[in-house]
Computed example of a mutant assay.
Amino acid sequence: MGSMDNRVAIVTGAGRGIGREHALLLAREGASVVVNDLGGGNDGSGSDAGPAQEVVDEIVAAGGAAIANTDSVADWDGAKRLVDQAISEFGGLDVVVNNAGILRDGFIAGIDKSQWDSVLGVHLNGHFNLLRHAAVYWKEQSKAGTPRNAAVINTASASGTFSTLPGQVNYAAAKAGIAAMTLVAAEELSRYGVRVNAIAPVARTRLTLATPGMSAIFAEEVPDGEFDAFSPANIAPVVAYLASEKCPLNGKVLAVQGGAVSLLEGWTFKETVETEGPWLLDELPGQFDRWS
């Protein structure tokens, strides 16, 4: 008996990297998996049905249940087709793992509209599109008296939660938005029996290997037999637990790297200055300048 027996899961961006590991482990734990991947490049260009189908073939060869989907989650209707496919093929939907992502880095003074829109489209809009269509289904199930013990796992990032990497203003903005979306969704969807959490993973993927300043770290070879702290396989067990029926967590953002998992918190009050009445403009420098 696996922890995901009789559960139906969608994993986006599951043709390679972290998403592939999610799909494989969920399937080994008994889930029926919809493997979603457009099959595009790092920047989202192009498409290829091969990566998603290869993961499906691997799952089926091991005795699991899986089907491929190549819709773009950045497309509103494509995300709905993805949800509809899971329900029609496997009889329901219990788990959504929002993992799909692209990179189109650029410094603020040089970034163009397409770089901004495409990254926000895949990451932030893509997360919301799938979440929204899944939420409609779960709301209907709850109202019909047949609520599902469902789970959503979003993918945030260190970029946008607690670090600032120049050249990733679009990526960081999307990931920060995903973390905030997770907290709101956790509050809203709990009434339908749905838990919503997020991970901020650090692992070796096509995207991290293509990130300037980070590629050398992730490309370092690990001697045979030694623990590979950057293997994407390290992330999947955390997601599988968050997806399981027994997991109690809701509204949490977890940083995951190697063998370490950290519970993150958002903005906090570090220091406060006050006045007895409204602020006067000439009073502010004496109070604010110490924060520079």
Rank of each mutant, 00 (worst) to 15 (best):
E89Q: 13
V202E: 10
A210I: 06
L124C: 06
M214C: 11
R132F: 09
A219Q: 11
A173V: 00
I153M: 06
S3K: 12
V184E: 14
G106D: 07
A233Q: 15
G266R: 04
A158M: 09
A229D: 10
K80Q: 14
D71W: 00
G145H: 07
V239A: 03
W138N: 03
L38P: 03
A49T: 11
E58C: 13
A236S: 13
S32T: 08
H133V: 10
P278K: 07
A66W: 02
N42Q: 08
L130Y: 03
T161M: 08
E58I: 12
E245R: 14
G13N: 01
L38F: 08
L281I: 12
D5C: 11
I87V: 14
D224K: 14
I235T: 06
S47H: 12
N154M: 07
K270A: 14
V33E: 02
S114V: 11
S47W: 00
V169G: 15
R20H: 04
L264E: 05
A9L: 06
L242K: 05
K252L: 13
I59D: 01
P51N: 05
P166T: 01
A219D: 13
G39V: 06
P201K: 04
Q85H: 00
D112G: 11
A86Y: 03
V119F: 04
A210V: 06
N99K: 05
T268L: 11
S72N: 12
M4A: 13
L25K: 04
A62G: 12
D75P: 08
L131G: 13
H123W: 02
E226Q: 15
G286M: 11
K80T: 11
T208Y: 02
V122M: 05
L183Q: 15
A233S: 14
R195P: 04
P278H: 12
D105H: 14
G193L: 10
V33H: 01
L280I: 15
